[in-house]
Design a binder for these strands. Structure first.
Lengths: 245, 245
DNA sequence: TTTTGATATTTTTTCGATATTTCTTATTAT
DNA sequence: ATAATAAGAAATATCGAAAAAATATCAAAA
């Protein structure tokens, strides 16, 4: 349930009591990323109120936050639904992510120093120590966090919090597609090597190579997801709205 | 009567009645951009409820949306305040904006076609026709829109809605700084020429020149704002919280 | 004087209920 | 039958008040 505070750089003063709206926000986000809430599906307030045991206001606040960061779409007077997915959108996502991370990575290498290197080495160590055996399509948040932290460390010296925030948003969006398509185990074997290669290129300040590796790292994921056939070609607005009895 | 579908793919149903939460969202956004709501200041629910004539819920929803897009900061159990401003943040903002718009512009030029050119020509025409006499620091939304539309047209063929959204967010953030510092009239004379030069470079498919012009276009704004002395050096968390008696 | 701790007040957050809008279904007229 | 329309049902959006949390006040003790 209630968890410890992550050390993501944000100063978490000791008594940061999470508000109900925030906790349901995180719960919803996690369920969307995990694919439990299916893309395109209607989010009925009544149902969510039951499922998450919260009242009207905090629920709406959470949904409004999710809507401005792209996880949920809002239609005036018609409520909310999980953002639909499509091959087109995934391709756009990956394309944009490659662009943004290329900048962030090149800048980081430009500004690199010992601390930066150490962050990468440490993050790599942690991600490489993860048990590679888990075959489920959705790995637990803790594992997911290590992975994210490695990627964040690579671009952590880019000197733009805004860009880092955008990269994180794009990461989350991508994560949703990945979990949707159960590509984790398919890839498990190679990912470690890819990570190592990226790390080494960065430590050697070989920006061109690092960018190339990182970019293909992302593009491969996209290819796997698409070939898995779990996505419709066009934006799937209304994917099988069956009311589960 | 089938509702018509606009060229951007989104079906526009005839009657899009705006919800209260949305209209107060827009009102708040406008007031923040215009500088009426001062950076760093506390946003008391009670006060806002009076000022904007809305109830609790829509107000909170609006603030929550604004908080995820960076215009407002949320502190758990302590409410909301207008995002603080600082020279550091402005520099970061401009830097990031230059990076992102460079990509978007280069991609657009890569994908350029007749429609793209026409959008730019038309948008330029409209912005150049604006009355250049207004000396107030804050120009009315209509004028501001024309200006935004020109800049949007330049990057409109980049083939990534997400990137366009980020560029728009950065534009809005920058706008806030600009209005804060009353740089409009100071610059009025030159801006027209700058726009023309950018337009011509794009139409000639000279990406390098276009990027150079666009980048300096933004950097100049930043310099003017900073030299106007209306910003504190560091992140002004608590800009003069004098309780007005 | 400064600190401490209990109490009162303000402010934020949440809940329950009501008002509005949209969706569904049934009815009527063409 | 089909289309238009109106009543009824379902869902969303909003309001006002209660609950929870933070902040301010002030008296007593060190």
């Amino acid at each position: 349930m209630a968890d410890k505070i992550t050390e993501n750089g944000v100063a978490t003063s000791s008594s940061q009591i999470e508000t109900l709206a925030s906790s349901v926000y995180h719960a919803l986000l996690e369920d969307i990323l995990a694919g439990k809430l299916i893309p395109g599906h209607k989010l009925r307030l009544q149902v969510l109120k039951n499922d998450y045991n919260v009242g009207n206001s905090p629920l709406r606040e959470a949904l409004n936050r999710l809507s401005t960061n792209g996880m949920v779409v809002r239609e005036e007077n018609k409520g909310f639904r999980v953002s639909p997915t499509s091959i087109t959108e995934l391709q756009e996502l990956i394309r944009t992510r490659c662009w943004l991370e290329e900048i962030a990575l090149r800048e980081s290498i430009k500004n690199a120093n010992d601390q930066y290197d150490e962050r990468i080495v440490l993050a790599f160590h942690r991600v490489s120590k993860l048990a590679p055996s888990i075959a489920s399509s959705y790995s637990p948040p803790e594992q997911e966090n290590k992975h994210r932290e490695f990627h964040q460390s690579l671009i952590s010296a880019c000197n733009s919090k805004i860009l880092l925030k955008y990269c994180e948003q794009l990461h989350e969006q991508t994560l949703r597609y990945r979990n949707l398509a159960a590509v984790v185990e398919y890839r498990e074997g190679h990912e470690g090597e890819e990570h190592r290669a990226i790390r080494d290129a960065v430590l050697e300040r070989n920006a061109d190579l690092a960018v190339k590796l990182l970019t293909s790292h992302y593009e491969i994921t996209a290819k796997i997801v698409i070939s898995s056939g779990s996505l419709s070609q066009t934006s799937s607005q209304n994917t099988s709205i069956k009311t589960i009895t």
